[in-house]
């Protein structure tokens, strides 16, 4: 099994964190994993992306040309990465911020979910990333949800412990969308 995922959105949407939680969850399950960020002159409000590869075998290139799964959190990222998906790949789109998926659906599975609206409804716009992550693993089951809940529980610094529960709930909410 090798799963190549590109995650893209706006700076400040927690794109890197989404990738890190996924990567660390995979590591805890004993899988090989690489996480490669976009590290240019990124600014809040600009686009940001990271590439995560999860595999049972050692990983060659950490760079992804065509992804198995594309997780898109805003419209500019959709424009930038729309062609970077394999035939029969999975496209997960945050329909709150990228309402027109604008990608031919033949040969691709598309999941359109309003992650940002759902996050607002749960009371914190910042958890849209965890809902999207939940949606991905609910659909693909690449990593066990228990591992990810553990990671969320362990990576929050002391003064942010209060945020663990809502992020874990967000992950679970997302899993229902994907599953």
């Amino acid at each position: 099994m090798t799963e190549k995922i590109i995650i893209a959105g706006a700076g400040g949407q927690g794109i890197m964190l989404l990738g890190k939680v996924l990567a660390e969850g995979a590591m805890r399950e004993g899988k090989y994993v690489t996480w490669l960020p976009s590290y240019g002159a990124e600014v809040r409000g600009g686009t940001a992306h990271c590439m995560v590869i999860i595999s049972d075998e050692p990983i060659g290139s950490p760079y992804i040309d065509k992804a198995d799964t594309l997780i898109i959190m805003n419209a500019p990222s959709l424009n930038k990465f729309r062609d970077r998906i394999k035939n029969k790949g999975l496209l997960i789109v945050n329909s709150s911020l990228a309402p027109e998926a604008g990608v031919a659906s033949e040969g691709r599975h598309i999941l359109r979910c309003p992650f940002t609206d759902l996050a607002l409804k749960m009371g914190n716009i910042k958890i849209a990333n965890m809902i999207a992550l939940g949606c991905f693993i609910g659909k693909k089951k690449t990593v066990n949800s228990r591992s990810l809940l553990e990671v969320i529980g362990s990576i929050a610094p002391e003064h942010k412990k209060g945020l663990i529960e809502i992020n874990q709930k967000a992950l679970e909410e997302g899993m229902e969308l994907g599953g």
Partner: peptide, 10 residues
């Protein structure tokens, strides 16, 4: 190189 420096692995 930049990839080795920036990428995360276990």
């Amino acid at each position: 190189d930049g990839i080795l420096g920036q990428m995360m692995e276990p």
